[in-house]
């Protein structure tokens, strides 16, 4: 009995250790909330983070990922520019006189359906161009997006090209080398559904 208690304890500790990114993130959030960097805040954030991770466990994220500062900065910069352009574009469509433009639903098959990259691409594509993710299929990487103004977005192919471009930027920023190579090799083949 003592033995089993020890193994559960150890399993629990392992789970906490495996979730160190979540722990670090929660600590950063806590410190930012308090607004100044002090030992009390960091330790308090860590303690609360452990509590959260133990009390509300999440399934582990199976994908491996890395970060390349150069492409990630490029992704961020492009994202900010696109966010401004897309926001003013939608704002203009909203306030200009006349009927709403032709909307459409376009499907695009991403090259890499791993959770982390699929989620990042989907979240970014909802914010950035005139698209809104309606449905995702995790195992095939199929993304169905709603397009507000299909004509000015260059038709279905224009939307697909943009989304694949976006995925490319995400992968170049966060994907490990072998995943990147695999997607490059696929690039020549058909990427559309």
């Amino acid at each position: 009995m003592n033995d089993s208690a020890e193994t559960t304890l150890r399993a629990r500790a392992g789970r906490v250790a495996a979730q160190w990114p979540a722990l670090a993130g929660l600590t950063v959030v806590w410190v930012l909330l308090w607004g100044d960097l002090s030992w009390a805040n960091v330790l308090g954030g860590l303690a609360l983070g452990v509590l959260v991770v133990v009390a509300l466990p999440l399934p582990p994220i199976p994908s491996r990922w890395t970060i390349r500062p150069g492409p990630a900065l490029g992704l961020l910069g492009r994202f900010v520019v696109d966010l401004v352009v897309a926001s003013f574009n939608v704002a203009w469509i909203a306030i200009r006189p006349g009927p709403a433009p032709q909307a459409a639903v376009v499907q695009v098959r991403l090259r890499n359906p791993e959770d982390v990259f699929l989620t990042t691409t989907a979240v970014l594509s909802t914010l950035v161009p005139g698209t809104l993710v309606v449905e995702t299929e995790r195992d095939t990487g199929l993304l169905s997006v709603h397009v507000l103004d299909i004509d000015s977005s260059g038709g279905p192919d224009g939307v697909r090209d943009y989304l694949l471009d976006l995925e490319d930027r995400v992968l170049r920023s966060f994907a490990p080398r072998d995943v990147l190579d695999r997607c490059r090799a696929q690039d020549g083949t058909e990427a559309h559904p």
Binding site: S87, F88, V90, A91, A94, A100, L132, H146
Partner: peptide
């Protein structure tokens, strides 16, 4: 304000969703 105008003017739920997300 533009987002709110869009949310009132667009005639489909998804169109409104666009207005509420981006601007």
């Amino acid at each position: 304000l533009a987002a709110a105008v869009g949310a009132v003017r667009f005639d489909s739920l998804l169109g409104r969703m666009h207005a509420v997300t981006k601007p």
